[in-house]
Write a protein that binds this DNA or RNA. Sequence first.
DNA 1: CAGTGAGCGAGCTTCCGCTTGACTT
Length: 766
Amino acid sequence: MIENLVIVESPAKAKTIEKFLGKDFRVISSFGHIRDLVKKNLGINIEKDFEPVYEIPKEKTKVVSDLRKASSEAKNIWIASDEDREGEAIAWHLAGVLKLDLDTTKRIVFHEITKDAISNAIVSPRKIDMNLVNSQQARRILDRIVGFEISPVLWKKVQPSLSAGRVQSVAVRLIVEREREIFSFKTESSYRVTAMFRIDTNTASAVLRAEASKRFPDEKEARKFLELCSAAGYSVTGITVKPGTRSPAPPFTTSTLQQEAYRKLGFSVAQTMAVAQKLYEAGKITYMRTDSTNLSKLALAKSREVIVSEFGEKYSKTRQFKTKSKGAQEAHEAIRPAYLDNSNVPGNQNEKKLYELIWKRTIASQMADALIEKTTISIDMNNSPVIFNATGEVIKFDGFLKVYMESTDQENNDDERDVIPPVKKGMPLYYNSITASQKFTSPPPRYTEASLVKKLEELGIGRPSTYAPTISTIQNRGYVSREDRPGEKRSLKILTLEKGKIASTPKTELAGKEKSKLFPQDIGMIVNDFLMENFSAIVDYNFTAEVEEQFDEIAMGKLKWTGMLHDFYGPFHKTIENTLEKKDRKTGVRDLGKHPETGEPITVRMGRFGPVAQIGTTENGSKPRFASLSKNQLLETITLEEALNLFRLPRSLGNHDSDEIVVGIGKFGPYIRFKGKFFSLKKGVDDPYTVTFERAIEVINEKNEDDKKKVIKEFGDIHVLNGRYGPYITREKQNYRLPKGTDAEKLTKEECITIIEKNNKSKKSS
DNA sequence: CAGTGAGCGAGCTTCCGCTTGACTT
């Protein structure tokens, strides 16, 4: 039996700490919270002053029995859960479940996982802070009330199984509102003029790229200006050289790691967290769910050592960054390598890449500023007030840039900076070419998973442990979807002045191409509008910040937690009742107009099986016709013409071999149906609205030919087929893998049956 | 794999934050 027991939240942390504490201490983990509000029902006695009803969730029973056993064997128990609201509550629940005396239970916290910090903590325990615990209870209960009272209203008024919550509903709102900004955005264009000057009459001399200080609204104005340019004389009128500095970004928090891993490595938010978890469990990095940019003294000293030996003394600059995000609780360090001398680690490709990113970011944060020199040259025209500006940037000292440069969300960076050739004030310049290119304004960008996390963090909504799950939730509910869009070609004009002549070149560019962006879905927009109409206080961007202030007051002992909940619940519950009393349901219905031939009304709305278009009504006994909207069409933006088009499918192409050929659009895109079989139409090759009878037969024959090639052997209902991953056996819609090294061509019926039986056995036994 | 839109209704769904595996393909 070991006398001393320390309980922490994470098993990986337990392992590390046990090493520091030595033989007399046993360290075990609670795996986070061990007790929560009951799963079913509200779990709160509203009338009894919001008394919570707690239970130990099923999946925690084993952990709890292990904890009970360990604590009964120990003489001294330290509870070392994290130093924040949730950690304090975990400590309190532990004390309750393990029947520990609140007055004598030793509560300790580590600010960093080092031997000194841990030994110091052990000798100075405190009591559990009930004010902090109560602020957590208030947070937990408020979230439960919001989620479990609004969601059932959605089931009644919109659709079953929907959900609403303090965090997820705001995330959806951000995406819906951004989409509407994009709908209403009006693209404008103007002409930007850039000149390539040379510094003397010799055509081979150095070139200076400069941009006109004015843009021109249309082609006519641009052309007029180029004509002036053609006749103008140019001279350098000003040279300014400004020194500047650039500083490194702070070390990673969960949110910034997710953003950079997306920008630099293309990781999804969930993927980043999964890879980071692996690195953490292997002891390669510190804890990955943190809102702090702090580095331990040990890490600061070690970084300095590494930087000085790798790059030299002048590259080192020790910095401690202040955490600026709203509502940060700073229970952990920033995310950093556990051992800073390792610039890389063994592991799979993604682990290596993410580790390197973390190493570089951490090291760079402790390096010197980069020194830059920015040069601006202004060039006058002798026949126009418009001036040209050339800018160039020279890095005088690279500093932290030697290791790491933070990326931005902007995709096209027009801001090119060139090397400036030697010029003097008053010097004449001569143009090689001057170009006016049409430039279009772009709408605000759609959110990526990572930029949504950034926005939520700015608003102080959600926590490092919930960013990734929240993003999954709003996708799982069908509120938003992560998609690519091919974009559309758009034509633009370029006017070029060369040797006194202006030529016009038409060009095309791709506009609106999207990769892995979050798009709102119809149900997300309907739910959002419903919440905005009825629960505007909850989806207000400041709601979380306001309740957080009150949680802080509870934590400081200035506000009673049950009183706070009471003040919130009164008006909130009234709103719930008022909303339930309203008769109408929210279907997102839109009237598109009348059928051009029959005059029947045409509407779109959310139906039982999704968004649907409808011609006619059930009035006076007539039967309406229905058609599902296709993917990428929204109730809010579909036009009458597009809706009418939906009713043209499925359509018959006529009979072949005395069977009908039908063309339609299904779940998996456009298809041809013939003799009960489906033949996919390829995107961009065949259009289901215009495909002909002859072409359909071609598609059918091609597919049948391909299918024949797929068959290697046939024994009654057993087929040996060629699949994506090589040959396999199929029988009664079940597929069976071949043992390694089998020659599919030589298989006999008996051998096939043996393989099938073997496969079935191993499935049952496992 | 590739529809469905008559209407009723039993029984279900749902939150946010802590933490990791145990599951399946």
